[in-house]
């Protein structure tokens, strides 16, 4: 398990911004939303639903950046770009790589979440 999935300085800023009372709520929302966004991209891919794919990638990029999940955010951004360019054929295994990265992020966030129970 590596903390590098989450940049703690970004995370701590976020915690300060929303307040300790609400960081738990925000983590829960992220952990609830992210799998849905990934699932929506997985579904959109075979249908070549470029717009849904792009929009979900865009949201995931934005959310992971807020938590300091830089790698996840960068991967989501790359997928958003492919969606924007209408080149879903280029996605290849990028979505699986992203899912694996998300698992790491999820693990770290769950641990961090525990501190705010």
């Amino acid at each position: 398990m590596s903390d590098s999935a989450i940049d703690l300085s970004v995370f701590n800023n976020l915690k300060e911004m929303v307040g300790e009372d609400f960081i738990g709520e925000l983590i829960d929302t992220f952990l609830d939303e992210a799998p849905q966004l990934i699932a929506s991209m997985q579904k959109a891919l075979p249908k070549n639903d470029v717009e849904t794919f792009r929009r979900s990638a865009h949201s995931l990029k934005s959310n992971s950046a807020s938590f300091g999940a830089h790698a996840l955010s960068d991967q989501a951004k790359a997928l958003e770009m492919l969606g924007r360019a209408g080149q879903l054929s280029q996605v290849g295994d990028k979505l699986e790589t992203l899912s694996a990265e998300y698992k790491k992020v999820e693990e770290v966030l769950k641990r961090l979440r525990h501190d705010f129970e």
Binding site: V18, S59, S66
Partner: peptide
């Protein structure tokens, strides 16, 4: 529209 951003802004500005 993004729920994480919405909550983040809501709580951040309330803060």
């Amino acid at each position: 529209d993004n729920k994480v951003n919405r909550i983040l802004l809501l709580r951040g500005l309330e803060q």
